[in-house]
Computed example of a mutant assay.
Amino acid sequence: MTTAIKTYTTLAAANAARQSEWPGVENITLAFRGLELAGEAGEACNNMKKLERARLGIAGSTATLEQLGDELADTVITAYLCALTAGIDMDATIIRKFNQTSEENGLATRLAALPIEAKSQRLRPILAKYDWYWPSDDHDSEISSSSVSELAQNIELEAGQVLEYDHGGVFERRYYAFLPPASDAGGDGNFEVDEATEEAAAATIAAELERRKGLEDKP
């Protein structure tokens, strides 16, 4: 059966889409990606060595510029995969870092910013397939969780504390909090809050605490 070809306009989007097809991708860690990146960079350097050896007239195997280009491409692709695994928006990071270096060195050249909202809309359905959750200030793949409640348990979130978290990469940031079951709860599940803003999450928790206080005050 022929697989329908899907084309993407950015490396980040294409990488994310292809990884969703790749068998075993759910087992990949950031450490694995780092070793993969080192391997690809090493292969590129090995081809550079062979080209330089030929230029210097030293006996030994050689390489072509096409082979070097292939390994450099693999290195860039793998760097993007590292960013994907870590939850880093590589396109935005490259723009920021390039322009920062220009500014620090008094250079006029700048890299134009991408339309972030358009890119977010394009990548959101792709990255959401991974269903990853992180604290917004720590995208370590070892902390990533399959649900926000699991993430809260993993980082030992305290009851009533609002957690700023990212879902499916950096394109959906939300705020989560929980309280133990109330005395009038119909079950033993936590009271959970998941809001688009920190203020809304904090307000919902405060309202629930006030409601529970009213229960305690009843004769």
Rank of each mutant, 00 (worst) to 15 (best):
L68F: 09
E71I: 08
Y80Q: 06
A59G: 12
K97C: 11
A63R: 01
S61R: 14
F98N: 09
I88R: 07
E40T: 14
T78F: 02
T75S: 15
R96S: 06
L65S: 10
G42V: 14
G69P: 07
A59I: 10
I94G: 03
I58C: 02
C45Y: 03
N47K: 04
L56I: 10
R96Y: 06
A86V: 07
A86E: 05
T75R: 05
A92C: 10
F98A: 15
Q67R: 07
E103N: 05
N47V: 00
L65Q: 12
A59P: 00
E104A: 05
A83K: 02
L72Q: 09
T75L: 05
Y80V: 09
S61N: 15
L72R: 07
G69C: 14
G57E: 02
G57C: 07
T62G: 15
C82D: 13
T101H: 03
A92F: 02
A73Q: 14
E103H: 05
I77H: 12
A83M: 14
K50P: 03
A86H: 04
A63T: 09
L51G: 01
A63I: 10
N47H: 05
L84D: 09
N105E: 06
I94M: 02
N99A: 04
N46V: 02
E71Y: 08
M90A: 06
I58L: 10
A79F: 04
G39C: 14
K97A: 13
L68N: 06
L72C: 15
A41K: 08
Q67H: 04
T101E: 08
D74C: 03
T101G: 01
T85Q: 08
L56W: 06
K50V: 01
F98V: 13
S61F: 00
G87V: 04
Q67Y: 00
N47C: 12
A54R: 07
C82S: 12
R96A: 13
A44S: 13
A44E: 00
T93Q: 12
